[in-house]
């Protein structure tokens, strides 16, 4: 195939993706420096960086930024550790492993909105929820999860959905691990911990890197779970950057401020991406 045809075949995808990236990005950048509120129509005036100043000095900004980082960090730790533990647990054959595996990975395929509503209503509800029933059975005071620990509730919901993702990837990788090496190590008297540390963990290095990268992309902008459960509250206790921008945009119709927030979210994502792509992207490229 000559290079002209190759270019022709690649052009649509590259051009479309480029447009998809550059047009909205350009518009966001432009909106972020003009005064633009859908509720007060008028000519768009250049406004310098006052949208940014407004967004950053807003009392919700700092909590939202911190919440975003807490969400990403804690969900990453929980899902990777739990996923690893579960993968090791079901790595060896036992009765009904296929069914166990299917049950364990199912949450990953549940819609985010359904996930959030099941947890909100049927598990975490302070009166009728299963958790409060269990708490009362043990003589404890039931907890109103969503208003007392909103951020933790969101972390639990998202981790419930994404631990199966980590598990699915780790178990697939474990199943392809060479067992001869492990058996040899066992014969030489290596402890299970040593086998895990020197054989299994290095084998899982790439899957772990991949899981971290993909989850970071998704969790930097958790939205649906917050939208249908806490609505970012109480106060700003469960507002992350994505939700804060959403509320500026579609609840207060302030396009300018929302766009400034969008630019900040993009910058944050790119700071994270810069390190991730360097660390993980290269790892991916080695293979292909």
């Amino acid at each position: 195939m000559n290079s002209r045809i190759a270019k022709l075949l690649q052009a649509p995808s590259i051009i479309l993706l480029f447009l998809w990236m550059i047009v909205p990005l350009g518009m966001t950048l432009y909106f972020s420096v003009v005064r633009y509120n859908l509720l007060s129509p008028g000519p768009l005036e250049f406004d310098g960086f006052s949208n940014y100043a407004f967004f950053i000095t807003d009392s919700a900004f700092l909590p939202a930024l911190i919440n975003t980082l807490i969400l990403v960090g804690s969900i990453l730790i929980i899902t990777v550790v739990m996923g690893l533990a579960l993968a090791l647990l079901i790595n060896r054959p036992f009765f009904g492993r296929g069914i166990v595996r299917v049950m364990m990975i199912s949450p990953f395929f549940i819609m985010p909105t359904v996930n959030a509503l099941i947890w909100k209503n049927m598990l975490m509800n302070p009166v009728y929820g299963i958790f409060s029933v269990i708490a009362i059975a043990f003589g404890a005071e039931p907890i109103d999860w969503l208003s007392e620990m909103p951020l933790l509730s969101i972390i639990i919901m998202v981790s419930w959905q994404w631990t199966p993702f980590a598990l699915l990837i780790f178990i697939t990788s474990l199943q392809s691990q060479d067992t001869e090496q492990q058996e040899a190590a066992q014969l030489d008297g290596a402890s299970s911990w040593a086998i895990f540390k020197y054989l299994t963990l290095p084998h899982l290095a790439r899957p772990i890197a991949v899981v971290i990268m993909i989850q970071t992309i998704f969790h930097l902008s958790i939205f649906a779970e917050i939208f249908v459960t806490t609505g970012g509250g109480p106060g700003y206790d469960s507002t992350n950057l994505a939700f804060l921008i959403f509320s500026q945009a579609l609840l207060q119709f302030d396009v300018g401020v929302a766009s400034a927030g969008g630019v900040i979210a993009i910058i944050l994502a790119n700071i994270v991406a810069f390190f991730l792509i360097r660390a993980v992207g290269k790892n991916l490229m080695v293979q292909s």
């Binding site: 909205p24 929302a258 969008g262 991406a273």
Partner: peptide, 9 residues
Amino acid sequence: MLPAVGVLM
């Protein structure tokens, strides 16, 4: 890596 919310508007 471009967060959806960044281009919502």
